[in-house]
């Protein structure tokens, strides 16, 4: 959903991180508006995940600038802010959903504890409130409320991924990063998961930047697409425009390779 009258919440300017020549990502620039869903697509090794890690503060960049405007309209420069502020941003206004749930969840802590962690981290001190909110979020991501005390290790892959979503959304972030969120899921679970994700994104007006190599996922979820190849963005634009009328040779190859 685009709100063109507003200022972008995230401004990425000439961001680069190279491991070797054309390995990593370089000279990436784009803007992201509130509530907008941006997909990063491209083949393995094209730099998608590197870019996501740079943007979410998990990796230091070689150069460039990432500007973020928070809820109170304060401007932050991601690479220049103190690490404490960066981490605070990551557990309040931002969220990160990992490809492997074990990277994003505490597997030996109950589902409720996982969801409640971010609340406790921002100073919530009332057990009853934390638990109530955890149970509400279990329902929002279509997990049975009576499994709130079960550990994620007893959940299926799809359930773990939904729990990760709940864990991130509980503090009502404005921007969520997702790395191959449907990577480990089978097709039917993937479809349900995407439905849920689309509903939550629209309901909560949360902006999302996600990485995928699956153009089907990209078409379902993304408002806008960034196509990467050999560490560079080769094409960007509205999802329909890119998928129906690809301009760059690589994008044309990518689109034509979808199995129909």
């Amino acid at each position: 959903m685009l709100h063109l009258d507003e200022k972008p919440i995230l401004e990425v300017k000439d961001v680069s991180k190279l491991y070797a020549e054309n390995k990593g990502c370089q000279q990436v620039s784009f803007e992201l508006y509130a509530g907008e869903v941006l997909g990063i697509v491209g083949e393995s090794g094209s730099g998608k995940s590197t870019l996501l890690k740079l943007l979410s503060g998990q990796l230091a960049s070689d150069n460039g600038e990432v500007l973020y405007i928070d809820r109170e309209a304060n401007l932050h420069s991601l690479f220049e802010m103190p690490i404490s502020d960066q981490r605070k941003l990551l557990r309040t206004e931002w969220g990160v959903v990992h490809q492997h749930p074990s990277d994003g969840l505490r597997m030996n802590i109950s589902a409720g504890g996982n969801i409640g962690e971010r609340l406790m981290a921002i100073g919530e001190r009332h057990y009853g409130d934390i638990r109530e909110e955890s149970i509400e979020w279990m329902a929002s991501v279509e997990l049975a409320a009576d499994r709130v005390d079960d550990k994620p290790s007893q959940f299926s892959g799809g359930m773990q991924q939904r729990l990760q979503i709940a864990k991130n959304l509980v503090t009502k972030p404005r921007l969520v990063f997702m790395d191959e969120p449907t990577g480990g899921l089978d097709v039917s679970v993937q479809a349900k998961f995407l439905d849920l994700l689309r509903r939550l994104v629209i309901e909560l007006k949360v902006a999302v930047i996600f990485v995928t190599h699956d153009l089907g996922v990209a078409r379902l979820l993304a408002d806008r697409l960034l196509v990467m190849r050999h560490s560079q963005v080769v094409e960007q634009g509205l999802t329909d425009q890119i998928l129906d009328d690809p301009q760059h040779a690589y994008t044309q190859l990518l689109v034509s390779s979808i199995v129909r």
Binding site: R87, S110, G113, R118, M120, A121, G123, I130, R131, V148
Partner: peptide, 18 residues
């Protein structure tokens, strides 16, 4: 260093939940 102690309450949360 950053005084991020929210995670410690997760343990107490688990106690009460169980």
């Amino acid at each position: 260093a950053l005084e991020e102690y929210g995670v410690m309450r997760v343990k107490l949360y688990e106690d009460i939940a169980r």
